[in-house]
């Protein structure tokens, strides 16, 4: 464009043109992501909320409004309450175990000299495996209830008879199966995050601690390492908690039925499995949607409680 000898009018036009170009560019670049998020986040939230207030049996359309009856029905449904109870217990086990174990692994691996990369890879590699695949191995081989299950083979060496790991309500061995598979799958992932955070702790802090006479690993851990890992710890606890509350894959695949049998899912049916069966098997989409909102409310509640206990993570950490 020529800049010489413009009268004010054309200059205003030029500026408007460039302003228009900026606006158009902005929306053109935003459009695919924005349309997608509106379509697959915004629309489902609203649709789901309206569905949850509707009697929507065998239909995906809302409109036959029944107020909050889906919610009250679910909250008085012993099976659903039982599923909420199940997932709370599961989460209360999974979160602390995963947290402590992954932190401990990170501290150990961090101290290793030779072979550090090897150990890091070995503990991290289960992250590559899907819940479906791991559930299959846990159910059909590792914790197979017959004599050819691997753990039963090991216990047989001590003269014990095979244990039906996922077959009985008491003793509830299936919890061991469900907890170990999730820990194996996710502990390495959190270990990597801790390892990265450990490397960012300034070395001078440890030197200062040594000069101040901090003796033994415990004091250093308590007064230097853990406080420095605070923000990382909070986000790991949060990720772990939200994921645990939405557990589905391992319950469905380890306890689910085969052939004509309904399986052992009755032993421990988490909310998401229950919601899935309400919506997709019983085709009650209204109640299924309501279940999703109740579960989300529970997640928010626990997140807030956890945040009150451990803090929400400081924003100052963001660079």
């Amino acid at each position: 464009m020529s800049v010489t000898h413009q009268n004010p009018e054309t200059r205003v036009k030029e500026r408007n043109k460039s302003h228009l170009r900026t606006t158009l560019s902005f929306w053109a670049f935003m459009a695919p992501a924005l349309i997608g998020l509106i379509l697959f986040m915004g629309v489902p939230i609203i649709w789901g909320f309206l569905l949850s207030l509707s009697h929507a049996q065998n239909t995906i359309h809302f409109g036959h409004f029944i107020g909050i009856r889906n919610y009250t029905d679910l909250l008085t449904d012993p099976e659903f309450l039982n599923s909420l109870y199940t997932i709370v217990i599961f989460t209360l086990f999974i979160v602390p175990i995963t947290f402590v174990f992954s932190l401990w692994l990170a501290l150990m691996v961090n101290k290793v000299g030779r072979g550090k990369a090897f150990f890091r890879t070995v503990f991290f590699i289960p992250t590559a495996v899907s819940y479906a695949a791991a559930s299959l191995i846990w159910r059909m081989s590792l914790f197979n209830g017959t004599a050819f299950g691997f753990v039963n083979h090991l216990t047989a060496l001590f003269g014990m008879s095979p244990i039906a790991w996922i077959g009985t309500a008491s003793p509830p061995w299936y919890w061991l199966v469900l907890v170990t598979v999730r820990i194996w799958l996710q502990v390495g992932f959190y270990m990597i995050i801790f390892l990265a955070a450990l490397q960012e702790i300034p070395h001078s802090l440890y030197e200062a601690a040594a000069m101040d006479g901090a003796t033994g690993g415990w004091q250093v851990l308590r007064y230097i390492t853990l406080p420095q890992l605070r923000a990382t710890s909070v986000s790991i606890l949060l990720l772990c908690l939200i994921a645990a509350f939405q557990a589905f894959d391992e319950f469905y695949n380890i306890l689910g039925g085969s052939g004509a049998s309904s399986g052992n899912i009755g032993l421990a049916r988490p909310p998401l499995v229950y919601i899935y069966s309400i919506a997709l098997s019983s085709q009650d989409f209204g109640m299924g949607a309501a279940g999703g909102f109740i579960l989300t409310a529970l997640i928010v509640m626990f997140t807030v409680v956890q945040g009150k206990l451990f803090g929400f993570g400081e924003s100052r950490e963001g660079k």
């Binding site: 935003m30 992501a33 924005l34 998020l37 379509l39 697959f40 986040m41 915004g42 629309v43 489902p44 939230i45 649709w47 789901g48 569905l51 995906i60 359309h61 939200i242 509350f245 939405q246 909310p271 998401l272 919601i275 919506a279 997709l280 989409f285 299924g288 949607a289 279940g291 999703g292 909102f293 579960l295 989300t296 997640i299």
Partner: peptide, 25 residues
């Protein structure tokens, strides 16, 4: 717009999978 997008981070799939199925249907 940025904060609205960030807000969707807090929506768990538990709440969207049933209506997203309805949408897909």
């Amino acid at each position: 717009i940025f904060f609205l997008i960030l807000g969707t981070l807090m929506i768990p799939s538990a709440v969207t999978f049933v209506p997203t199925f309805a949408l897909m249907a």
